[in-house]
C-alpha cells in the first residue's frame, strides 16, 4: 500500500532534517563577509562617493565593519551620528546579505558596483535641501558665546578641558573643547553624541539647563536660509522613564523669538522647524538657542540645528 510504504520509510525525514540543518549552518555561517573582507569595499566606495555624499551600511549591524575598513575620512563622526539624511545630496550604500537601508528608501540609484559579497550603490536624494549654516559644525569660540541668565554668568571656551565620560549608564562624553559654565561639569556646552530612542547616534550640542533661567548659546554672523530646523533629545536612558520635567528650547534671531520647541520625556529624537519670517535670507544674523526647564534634575538636553 502506497501510504504504508511512506509511513514505513518516514523515519528518513529525520536524518534528512539533521543534514539539512548542518547544510543550513554551513551556509548561514559563511554567508556574511569576514571582517577582513571589508577592505574590498574601499575601492568601489572611493570610486562612487562624491564630496558631501553619505556612506550608509545595510544591515546596520555591519556599520562598524565599514567604519573599520573605510576610516574616519570616508565615514566621519558628523555622518555616522547625523541628525537625518535630508541634507545629503546622495548616499553610497554598502549592502550585504541583500539588505538595503530603510532611510534611503526614497533615493534613486544612479550607479552600482558589485564586489564579492558586497553591493555598493550610489543613490541620489531627490529631496536634498541645501544647508546654509550648521550650528553644530559652527560651535567655535570665534563665532559663539555662552551665558546663563539667573544669575547672569558667562561660560568661557576651554579648548583643552578634561574629557569626562559617564561610563555605564552615565552621561555622554564631554569633549575637551567646550564652553564651561560655573556650577559643575554638567553645565557646559559642547558637541557630543547621544543615543536616541532607537539607540542610534545623534551628534548634538549638549546644553544642560541651569536651576533657574536660561543657558544661552549665541551664534554671531550666521547666514540664514528660510527656516531654522533641528532636533532635540536626551540620552534615551534619561528620558525613557518619563519622569523628568519638559525642557524648552527657545530660538531668537537678532533678538526676535522665532519659535519654541518643548521636549517632553519620551519624545525621543524630535524634530522642530521654525520659519525665519523677515529674517529669512539674512547674511549675518545673531542666533540664540536658550534652554530652560522648571526642574533641571537629570535634564541631559542636547540639540542640533541648521538653517536651510
Amino acid at each position: 500500500m502506497r501510504w504504508g510504504r511512506w509511513a514505513r520509510w518516514g523515519f528518513t525525514l529525520i536524518p534528512v532534517l539533521g543534514l539539512a540543518e548542518l547544510g543550513g549552518h554551513v551556509y548561514a555561517s559563511h554567508r556574511a563577509p569576514r571582517f577582513d573582507d571589508w577592505a574590498a569595499v574601499r575601492a568601489p566606495v572611493e570610486a562612487l562617493k562624491q564630496p558631501g555624499d553619505l556612506v550608509v551600511v545595510a544591515p546596520p549591524w555591519a556599520d562598524p565593519l565599514a567604519r573599520r575598513a573605510l576610516g574616519d575620512a570616508l565615514m566621519p563622526l558628523r555622518d555616522a551620528a547625523r541628525p537625518d539624511e535630508s541634507r545629503y545630496p546622495a548616499a553610497v550604500e554598502i549592502s550585504i546579505l541583500g539588505q538595503h537601508a530603510d532611510e534611503l528608501a526614497g533615493f534613486r540609484e544612479v550607479a552600482r558596483q558589485e564586489r564579492g559579497k558586497f553591493l555598493v550603490r550610489r543613490l541620489e536624494n531627490p529631496a536634498a535641501t541645501r544647508v546654509a549654516f550648521d550650528f553644530v559644525e559652527g560651535l567655535r569660540p570665534a563665532r559663539v558665546d555662552v551665558r546663563g541668565t539667573e544669575p547672569p554668568l558667562t561660560c568661557p571656551w576651554n579648548p583643552s578641558a578634561r574629557v569626562v565620560a559617564g561610563g555605564l549608564g552615565g552621561h555622554p562624553t564631554f569633549p575637551a573643547a567646550r564652553f564651561e559654565c560655573p556650577g559643575g561639569v554638567f553645565f557646559n556646552v559642547g558637541v557630543t553624541v547621544i543615543p536616541d530612542q532607537h539607540f542610534r547616534p545623534r551628534r548634538c550640542i549638549w546644553s544642560h539647563p541651569f536651576a533657574r533661567g536660561e543657558i544661552i548659546t549665541r551664534f554671531h554672523g550666521v547666514p540664514l536660509g528660510q527656516v531654522i530646523r533641528g532636533h532635540s533629545g536626551m540620552s534615551w536612558f534619561v528620558e525613557r522613564e518619563r519622569k523628568g520635567a519638559p525642557v524648552t528650547l527657545t530660538v531668537r534671531v537678532n533678538g526676535d523669538e522665532i519659535g519654541r520647541a518643548t521636549h517632553r520625556d519620551g519624545d525621543g529624537w524630535a524634530a522642530f522647524e521654525m520659519p525665519l519670517g523677515a529674517h529669512a535670507g539674512a547674511t549675518e544674523a545673531q542666533v540664540e538657542f536658550a534652554v530652560s526647564a522648571r526642574d533641571y534634575q537629570h535634564r541631559h538636553f542636547c540639540f542640533e540645528a541648521d538653517s536651510r
Binding site: P64, L77, A80, A81, V163, A165, G166, G167, L168, P172, T173, P175, V191, T192, V193, I194, P195, F199, R200, P201, S235, F237
Partner: peptide, 11 residues
C-alpha cells in the same frame, strides 16, 4: 549599550 561606543567616539 551603544552609548558606550558613542562615548568612545567622542573621547
Amino acid at each position: 549599550m551603544l552609548d558606550q561606543a558613542y562615548q568612545a567616539w567622542v573621547a
